[in-house]
Amino acid sequence: MKIVIAGGSGFIGRYLTDILLGEGHQIVILTRKAMQHSADVSYVKWLEDGALPEKEIKYADVFINLAGVSINDGRWNANHQKQIYDSRMKATDELVRIIEALPEKPSVLINASAIGIYPASVNALYTENSLETANDFLGKTIRDWENKAKKVETHSIRAVFMRFGVVLGNEGGALPLMALPYKLFAGGTVGSGEQWVSWVHVKDVVQAIVFAIENDNLRGPVNVTTPTPVKMKDFGKTIGSVLHRPHWLHVPSFAMKIALGQKSALVLEGQHVVPKVLKEEGFAFQFPTLHLALEDLLTHK
Rank of each mutant, 00 (worst) to 15 (best):
S9H: 06
Y15R: 14
L16I: 02
L21C: 10
G22E: 11
H25W: 11
V28R: 09
K33Q: 15
K33R: 15
A34N: 15
Q36F: 04
H37I: 02
V41G: 12
E48Q: 15
E54G: 11
Y59M: 08
F63N: 04
N65E: 07
A67D: 01
G68L: 03
V69T: 12
N79T: 10
Q81P: 00
I84G: 05
D93T: 08
L95P: 02
I99T: 02
I99S: 01
A101L: 13
K105L: 02
K105W: 12
K105Y: 05
I110V: 08
S113H: 02
I117H: 04
A120I: 08
V122L: 14
L125Y: 06
E128V: 07
L131H: 12
E132Q: 15
A134M: 00
N135G: 13
D136W: 05
T141D: 11
W145P: 07
E146Q: 05
E146S: 01
E146N: 05
A149L: 07
R163P: 08
L168E: 05
G169H: 13
G169T: 06
A174L: 00
Y182P: 01
K183S: 14
L184M: 15
L184S: 00
G187A: 07
S192E: 01
G193D: 02
G193H: 14
W196D: 00
D204F: 12
V206D: 09
A208T: 00
I209F: 11
A212V: 00
I213R: 13
N217V: 07
L218N: 09
V222Y: 06
T225M: 08
K231Y: 11
F235W: 11
F235C: 06
G236N: 11
K237E: 04
T238C: 13
T238R: 12
I239P: 08
I239Q: 10
S241E: 13
S241W: 02
P246L: 03
H250P: 05
H250G: 02
P252H: 05
S253D: 00
F254E: 06
A255C: 11
I258E: 01
Q271D: 10
K279M: 15
F283L: 04
A284V: 14
F287C: 02
T289N: 14
T289E: 02
L294S: 07
L298A: 01
